[in-house]
C-alpha cells in the first residue's frame, strides 16, 4: 500500500505543478460550435494554442474526428465522412469550418439516439510531425484510428494534442446543447511583479480555468456560481506581453474562451 503516499509526495513537489502556467507549447482550447450538430450542418472549430513567454514558434495543426472507445476509433467510416484537416503555420487562435455530411445519419440508430464523437487536434512546431505530410498526401490515415499511436508517432517536446467531445444528433435545434455563456474582463495592462484582477461571470455549474504564458492565475480553476468570481493574475517581474486565456467548460463538451494579451509595464 505504499502508493497511498503518492499524494503526499505530490503535495511536497511544487516544481512544475502550477497548472495555470504554460510551460511549453500547449493546445489550451478547442471549441466546437455548436457542440451538438446534426447531419448536413456546419460546425465551426476554433483552436487556441499557447506557448511560454518569448518568441512564438511556427505551428502546424492536424484535426480529425473519431468515434472513440478510449482505445480505437470504432467507426472507421467517420474518417471518410469527415476528412482530417491539416493547416500550416497557424496563428495562436485559428478557426475552420467542417460540414457534417448527410451520410453521417448512418452513424445513428433508427431512433436517432445522439452519438458522441471526439474531435482530436494536434499542434506541432513546424518540422516535428511528418505525420502531417502523410495525411496531406492521403496516406497514414489508419494511424488516426488509434489516437494514442499518433501521440507515440510525434515527439513529446514541441507538440500538444487534445480531445474534445462533440455530439451528433437529430434533435430539434432548440433541444440541443449550446456552448455556455461566458464573460471575462481582463485588463489590457498591469504592473511588473504585481497583480491584476480578472472578473469572470458565466453559466452556473460550469468551471472556469485560467492560463497564462508567464506568472500565474490564482485559483487555476473555479466552479462558477450565480455571482461573478474574481481571479487574481500574478504578473511576471519583467515587462513585456503576457498571453492570458480564460476557458469555461460545462463538462459536457460545451465551452467558450476569452483571450487577451496583457502588457506588463
Amino acid at each position: 500500500m505504499i502508493w497511498w503516499l503518492l499524494p503526499v509526495f505530490a503535495a511536497c513537489a511544487p516544481v512544475g505543478t502550477d497548472p495555470s502556467l504554460i510551460p511549453n507549447l500547449r493546445l489550451a482550447q478547442v471549441q466546437v460550435d455548436p457542440p451538438e450538430a446534426m447531419p448536413g450542418e456546419d460546425v465551426d472549430i476554433t483552436a487556441e494554442w499557447m506557448h511560454p513567454r518569448g518568441a512564438a514558434p511556427s505551428v502546424d495543426l492536424l484535426s480529425w474526428a473519431c468515434a472513440w472507445d478510449g482505445e480505437t476509433c470504432t467507426r472507421p467510416e467517420v474518417l471518410e465522412l469527415v476528412p482530417p484537416v491539416v493547416l500550416r503555420d497557424v496563428p495562436p487562435t485559428v478557426d475552420w469550418r467542417v460540414t457534417v455530411p448527410l451520410e453521417a445519419r448512418d452513424l445513428l440508430d433508427d431512433a436517432g439516439t445522439p452519438v458522441g464523437l471526439f474531435s482530436f487536434t494536434l499542434v506541432c512546431e513546424q518540422g516535428l510531425c511528418p505525420i502531417l505530410d502523410d495525411i496531406e498526401d492521403g496516406v497514414g490515415w489508419e494511424l488516426l484510428a488509434r489516437p494514442e499511436d499518433v501521440v507515440r508517432a510525434v515527439p513529446l517536446e514541441g507538440t500538444s494534442m487534445a480531445s474534445r467531445v462533440m455530439v451528433l444528433s437529430l434533435r430539434d435545434p432548440e433541444a440541443r446543447r449550446l456552448n455556455p455563456d461566458f464573460e471575462a474582463v481582463i485588463p489590457a495592462e498591469g504592473p511588473a511583479g504585481g497583480t491584476v484582477a480578472v472578473r469572470v461571470e458565466g453559466a452556473v455549474s460550469a468551471v472556469a480555468y485560467g492560463y497564462t504564458s508567464a506568472g500565474s492565475v490564482e485559483p487555476w480553476a473555479e466552479q462558477l456560481g450565480p455571482d461573478p468570481f474574481t481571479f487574481t493574475l500574478h504578473l511576471p517581474d519583467t515587462p513585456g506581453p503576457v498571453d492570458v486565456l480564460f476557458v469555461l467548460e460545462d463538462m459536457l463538451g460545451g465551452s467558450r474562451s476569452v483571450r487577451q494579451t496583457i502588457q506588463v509595464r
Partner: peptide
C-alpha cells in the same frame, strides 16, 4: 516511460501515453 500525452479538454486532465 511516458512517451506522449493528450489533454481531455472537458476535464482539463492530461492522459499519459506509455511506451
Amino acid at each position: 516511460p511516458v512517451v506522449g500525452r493528450y489533454q481531455q479538454l472537458e476535464s482539463r486532465q492530461f492522459v499519459p501515453v506509455f511506451g
